[in-house]
Nucleic acid binder design. Structure first.
Lengths: 251, 251
DNA sequence: GTAAAGCCTCCCCTAAGAGGAGGGTCAAGA
DNA sequence: TCTTGACCCTCCTCTTAGGGGAGGCTTTAC
């Protein structure tokens, strides 16, 4: 039993153009070609087509699929390589989605934010205000809380932004390295962070900080920012802050 | 101060070809073009280029970027649309990785292309379910080998181990994908996990599970196991379990 | 015999540039 | 002033996996 291009295209849900293409690049040859030049496919070709489509679903290129379907080939290695590729692609995609969410949150409040803007220093108070505007709007709208009335000290803000980034990076490193959330390394980091904040006019106690970290978990804007730095960081920091507060309260 | 293509390409880490291209399609016009036809860019153009590159990172097409950078445009809607697109892409990618793992497992065990037969007629949900099944099978076997030396009920342990691994992978995916720890996806996972445990003779309540997750944080063995699966998972799960217990307790 | 459906090949098109040919321009050193 | 080398230009072709269509055969049904 032989099938015409139309029949194959309907059986396998591909277009005739695709069959032409696979013929041209030698990936799927018809069993025979009639005198009039009509392509005729047999059962074996249909099965091969299924395999081609299967690997195509896995995002292999047609060239790779040709190799995969060849004989005497290390399929395991090719599949493993593809697995690695897809995992890195997924990682990137996740970062991208997190960044999108942060941008979306900023755009909703009328600002434009790119990640670079987020932590770079600014030259003037106006610039800082502008950068913080999105965040303020977000807080005000969702939580009835307004930060905007306080005056902004430019160098101080830059310094604080830098310190915040340093702290976040340090905490992310601890998390990646498997340090306990209630361990000494993280406690040290938090202690330094709180000391810095206190030295810069924020009367923040361990309990306040723990509450703030817990609040960040539920707030898309802040959670996205932390998760963009390192997957899991928002959760780690919350638990670490609570452990720190508990520790400093009882001692 | 004007910059040549070479200078811009080095400042912004793009190729000169890219600048030519953006000029041709009208996305980034030089501030001026010299008599000899040299493209010269100013500060404003550099900033616009940064924005272009930022949106390019978010996988927007150049055409979309042009629209995004136009005035009087609903950036929020475009970003939201892109967010939806990326999430569906991520969903597909996750399925794809799972299928790849199953294929890889089959290939390692000497199964050649009959593995592909398993997923033949792809596109239907039933096939993807089959893919997941194969994946579970593989994990069960591997975990079974590890535990085989201990005097335990191997088939039963295998089944439970497989379920545990599946749960862990699901939770890790949620974490990576930025799902809230108190969101519906994770709650669903935990509910299923607890239902499975209860059906297998463990009288475990949401509160017990939350306590257990909290205990895992302090236990190096369990914490390492979770963190090996995905950085931050132990902390995420603990907070998710507590949120779940709080939710199921109050309702 | 004729019309409709089906098939063929050939050509151009896509997105975002990469690579290169062939030729003009600029600045520095001899 | 000449030359050399770096830099720049435009124009052309190429990449993936086919899509769209033109123009022209072939097969099938009535």
């Amino acid at each position: 039993m032989l099938y015409t291009v139309k029949e194959v295209s309907e059986l396998a849900h591909v277009t005739i153009k695709t069959l032409h293409h696979y013929h041209k690049i030698g990936l799927l040859l018809p069993r025979e070609v009639s005198e009039a030049g009509y392509r005729m496919y047999g059962q074996w070709e249909l099965e091969r087509l299924q395999e081609i489509l299967f690997y195509k679903e896995l995002d292999f290129s047609l060239e790779q699929i040709g190799e995969l379907l060849a004989e005497n080939v290390d399929r395991t290695a090719i599949l493993a390589e593809q697995h690695r590729l897809m995992q890195s692609r997924q990682k990137r995609l996740t970062q991208l989605i997190i960044t999108l969410e942060a941008s979306l949150a900023a755009a909703k409040n009328g600002g434009t934010m790119n990640q670079a803007d987020m932590f770079k220093g600014f030259g003037s108070e106006a610039e800082w205000r502008e950068a913080l505007e999105a965040q303020n709007q977000h807080l005000k709208e969702n939580y009835g809380y307004d930060l905007a009335e306080q005056p902004i000290d430019v160098p101080k803000m830059n310094e604080q932004a830098a310190e915040a980034v340093r702290f976040m990076k340090g905490a992310a490193a601890c998390l990646r390295e498997g340090r306990r959330h209630d361990g000494p390394e993280v406690a040290q980091l938090i202690a330094e962070h709180l000391a810095f904040l206190q030295a810069h006019g924020h009367a923040i106690q361990p309990d306040d900080y723990a509450a703030q970290s817990r609040f960040f978990l539920g707030d898309d804007f802040h959670r996205s920012m932390l998760e963009a730095q390192q997957v899991g960081l928002a959760y780690y920091l919350c638990l670490a802050a609570e452990a720190y507060a508990a520790g400093s309260g009882s001692n």
